[in-house]
């Protein structure tokens, strides 16, 4: 009997439209106290809709996602300002719905409509949304959700470039050191993604912003008193400098005596993990065929100390590459 009166199933586009209407309602009636019951009801409906969007995009226990449905959903989603509404209203949603919304936004970044990534085009025209997402690191309640969305958005090269070139880059040096571990780590992950994902863009950013960037990096991250900050920063520095696309930046970095001194201090750090990561950067200074005099001088002055240090510098598990690198460094320093 029930089947007879079942309403026509909603299309993915219907679900998007309804979600949008509910978000508009929520956005308008945010402060009002009066219609609480009505608001609760709309809220529950919204949660259901967002969950449905998620199950269309990801599939559920019984079924795989259907490409056609995903395309429909994506088209309708970006036809109007649904993404903006969703991001703005996120703090008003409950935890489970926030998580669903985050997963929906993440998935949409990869959806293609007639072999074009619609999300990328939308974000390019709405770059202020990235400002909103980044400022999420200042609000503990939404930081992890906005952070996840942000990392998905910077998969698009043009969007990553926007963030790299914005003033936000400077803020990351604060976010990384927030006391809350989850949030600081999330910011670190985003920072790393920005500085490693799109090779050419990163190389260009680093050459253009070399002075302020590495000055901040050295003084605030590598010289931080926070163990995690230091450990993540030295690892990231190694990743950046050892990337072939950044070779020009690397040459510049290893030609500075100030940088060398920072690295030599990190070699003496009480943490083995930090020492090892520092070694992977230090070896670049030693291996540089055109060492500036100031670098040579420092290495010569500290030669005996360095050689003594490397003689006892071992890592727990056997690593041929590490041993070979160490041999090479010892050879270089002895020959100076």
């Amino acid at each position: 009997m029930k089947g007879l009166f079942k309403s026509k199933p909603r299309t993915p586009a219907d679900v998007v439209r309804q979600t949008r209407e509910l978000l508009i309602f929520l956005d308008l009636h945010s402060g009002s106290r009066g219609g609480d019951a009505k608001r609760e009801e709309k809220m529950a409906e919204l949660s259901k809709n967002i969950r449905e969007l998620k199950s269309i995009l990801y599939g559920n226990g019984e079924s795989e996602p259907v490409t056609e449905a995903c395309v429909q959903l994506t088209q309708e989603f970006f036809r109007e300002n649904t993404l903006r509404l969703l991001i703005i209203c996120l703090p008003k949603l409950n935890l489970e719905t926030r998580k669903d919304a985050t997963q929906v936004v993440a998935n949409l970044q990869r959806q293609q409509v007639s072999s074009k990534i619609v999300a990328s085009e939308y974000l390019e025209a709405n770059k202020d949304l990235l400002d909103t997402l980044i400022s999420g690191y200042e609000n503990m309640d939404i930081a992890l959700h906005y952070g996840s969305m942000l990392r998905e958005c910077i998969r698009h090269q043009s969007i990553a470039r926007y963030v790299l070139e914005s003033d936000h880059m400077k803020k990351f040096f604060d976010y990384i050191q927030l006391p809350n571990f989850d949030i600081a780590s999330d910011a670190s992950a985003t920072f790393k993604e920005l500085l490693t994902r799109h090779k050419a863009t990163v190389a260009e950013f680093l050459s253009k912003n070399y002075d302020w960037f590495f000055s901040e990096f050295n003084t605030r991250l590598l010289s931080s008193t926070n163990y995690i900050t230091k450990r993540q920063a030295i690892k990231l520095l190694g990743d950046m400098l050892l990337d072939r696309s950044n070779s020009a930046v690397m040459m510049r970095y290893v030609s500075s005596k100030d940088n060398l001194m920072i690295l030599m201090n990190l070699l003496r750090d009480s943490s083995k993990n930090i020492q090892i990561e520092a070694f992977h950067v230090f070896k670049l200074f030693a291996a540089n065929k055109n060492k500036p005099t100031e670098v040579v001088n420092i290495l010569v002055t500290n030669r005996s100390k360095l050689l003594r240090f490397f003689a006892g510098f071992k890592i727990d598990k056997e690593d041929e590459q590490f041993e070979a690198d160490k041999e090479q460094v010892i050879k270089e320093i002895s020959a100076l």
Partner: peptide
């Protein structure tokens, strides 16, 4: 560290009466 972070994040985002959720986490040395 990435794995540690993933665990912390998982714990921070779960909310159910029968699931242990961390109040917070921070580093000490």
């Amino acid at each position: 560290l990435d794995e540690v972070w993933r665990e912390a994040k998982a714990m921070a985002l779960l909310s159910h009466r029968n699931v242990l959720r961390a109040h917070c986490s921070f580093t000490v040395g």
